[in-house]
């Protein structure tokens, strides 16, 4: 039994429509395993998502998360997982921002479910979503001083005194 199935026709249709609408210099596409992933610059992300929702029937935002690739020019990124329920088709749309200007437009006007997802991304990575109704931290305490999921923040509690680093090799 194959590990996954590929919906080649729908992938091709989506890619063609996106390239037609936004141009090849704005949209880069790649198939990773069974899903097409599109990378879009941050100025176009809201238009791309609105286009996907309205014209290509991606009515369901499955999830959204942030990522941190230290060393790249645009270090922070967000991934949107879109699902067209009627066609049974899933894609991922990514956009990257730099550490200094980590702002993106909100997607809550397109899908209300993006509300808490964007708050979680802000809480973990520090990406600010402009236009969000309630942009504050969600899982950590409101006055938490850093953005913990970034690669430079340590995992362990910095104040613990009972574990000896020499033994644990950290």
């Amino acid at each position: 039994m194959p590990a996954f199935t590929i919906k080649a026709e729908r992938d091709q249709l989506t890619t063609d429509r996106l390239l037609e609408r936004f141009g090849a210099d704005a949209v880069t596409h790649e198939r990773l395993y069974d899903t097409m992933c599109y990378v879009v610059p941050k100025e176009k992300i809201h238009d791309v998502l609105a286009f996907l929702r309205d014209e290509l029937d991606f009515n369901f935002l499955t999830s959204m998360c942030g990522m941190h690739f230290p060393g790249l020019e645009l270090e922070l990124g967000t991934v949107y997982f879109l699902h067209s329920m009627r066609n049974g088709h899933r894609i991922r749309v990514k956009t990257f921002v730099s550490l200094k200007e980590a702002t993106l437009p909100t997607a809550t006007d397109l899908w209300p479910t993006a509300n808490w997802m964007e708050r979680e991304t802000y809480d973990f990575f520090g990406i600010h979503f402009s236009g969000h109704p309630n942009m504050k931290r969600i899982l950590n305490m409101d006055d938490f001083p850093a953005f913990p999921m970034r690669k430079d923040y340590p995992l362990e509690d910095p104040t613990r005194e009972d574990k000896n680093d020499t033994f644990f090799g950290r």
């Binding site: 499955t62 999830s63 998360c65 990522m67 941190h68 991934v79 997982f81 209300p112 479910t113 509300n115 808490w116 997802m117 979680e120």
Partner: peptide, 26 residues
Amino acid sequence: GFYIVSDGGRNPFRVHFRRPCFIYYQ
């Protein structure tokens, strides 16, 4: 849902869990 980004190492580079409770409790 489980989203895994792997960079070839022993641990995944990034893991994201799509947790249904978090999404629908909003």
